[in-house]
Amino acid sequence: MARVQAGDTSAFDQLIERYKGRLYATIYHMTSNHEDAADLLQETLIRAFRAMPRFRRDARFSTWAHRIAVNVTINHLRQNKKRFSMSLDQMEMDPNELDSIRELLSEQALRPGDDREEQIASLQKILNEAIQSLSENHRAVVVMHSVQGMTHGQIAEILGIPEGTVKTRLFHAHRLLRKKLARHLKDF
């Protein structure tokens, strides 16, 4: 970390290799667009590298980098509210998960004749549309908690807000998602 803070780019490369996947996933799940995610990941890395001299080592690098990524993504989403396009047919899913999908989705969402690819695309579309309908702040919390499995404490640290606020946002976001997905899901 000291080498990175001294401006050693090769040391920063190692950090990139280590965290690029998780950072990309966070950004992608918030934007639902692979091209935007790749571009925003680069912007995140550039900003992180420039801000490295100001990085205090009392926080974890991953938390700090996630904070930059989430802020960069939220700014991007706010600036491009009217321009929204999802990346479809780019989902790679474990075949074993397909039964789970069938179990969760209603007949409205999955028709018996549809093949696997169509069912996956359908699921992706339904989920992403529902997530994209949330506000940027609600979306960030849902993605980090429900999709990426972070704890309330980690999210609070990344967003710089109290844990109680994280829980409140999550509660409201889930309520909105249930409402949005009610038509497509069983048991709602």
Partner: peptide
């Protein structure tokens, strides 16, 4: 309902980059 939603959202983890 909340568990069902959580399971569904967790499926998004299976989405991979290009």
């Amino acid at each position: 309902n909340d568990e069902t939603l959580q399971r569904l959202l967790a499926l998004k983890r299976c989405e991979k980059p290009l």
